[in-house]
């Protein structure tokens, strides 16, 4: 494990993209988790603002302009870190993806392509949401669409809140319950997309 700077030998802190003593960009480490890459503790209760600022600060230091005259190896390292940081931001800022990432880390695949849902209550509620959306679109009911969106947002927020409780201590001991919540959230997420698309297209009529 390369825990010291390749340039000056100083011990590396997290995030380890740079040596904090001499500023040298370090070899990329693909084995690090997304949390380690951004230098934040692995947790579901992560502040999106802190995450964003952390990534922005690191990206500034990794900007290609800074490496225009650097050797090929340093340029490659900086590009690798930078790509991984973008990935970390995209995944960790989204509660759904963040929860999925944390559960995957403990071997729980809640949203895989082969995962199927047979929970009648969940399916029934999703079917009813979809039918309502269809009717609202047919009736060109703009206010109804907004009301539906508000309702679905509230349901999604409630699911995120419950996930927060289950994922408070990691690894999660009630991973089945967390996986079920994650699936519900995924359905709601797709539904939100669909409502947004319907709102856009009805406004363009």
């Amino acid at each position: 494990m390369p825990n010291s700077c390749i340039q000056c030998g100083a011990e590396l802190n997290f995030p380890p993209a740079f040596c904090h003593a001499c500023g040298t960009v370090q070899p990329f480490r693909p084995e690090l988790s997304l949390f380690e890459v951004v230098g934040l503790p692995a947790s579901f209760a992560l502040d999106p603002q802190t995450l964003r600022q952390r990534v922005l600060d690191l990206q500034k230091m990794l900007h290609p302009d800074r490496f225009a005259h650097a050797d090929g190896t340093a340029r490659r390292y900086s590009l690798e870190w930078s790509t991984r940081l973008n990935e970390a931001l995209a995944i960790l800022r989204d509660p759904l993806k963040r929860a999925d990432y944390l559960l995957q880390a403990q071997g729980v695949d809640a949203l895989g392509e082969n995962v199927k849902v047979a929970d009648p209550a969940l399916l029934m509620s999703q079917m009813m949401y979809r039918e309502r959306l269809e009717d609202l679109v047919a009736a060109k009911d703009q206010q109804g669409l907004e009301d539906l969106r508000t309702e679905v947002d509230a349901a999604a927020n409630a699911a995120v809140e419950k996930l927060g409780i289950l994922l408070k201590t990691l690894p999660c001991s009630q991973s089945d319950a967390a996986a079920a919540l994650l699936r519900e959230l995924q359905f709601l997420d797709k539904l939100q997309d669909e409502i947004d698309r319907s709102e856009e297209s009805s406004q363009n009529l």
Binding site: A110, K116, A118, Q186
Partner: peptide, 13 residues
Amino acid sequence: GMVGAPACGDVMR
């Protein structure tokens, strides 16, 4: 029969 696939958010009856 009702089934769903969370990966793509599909619901089928």
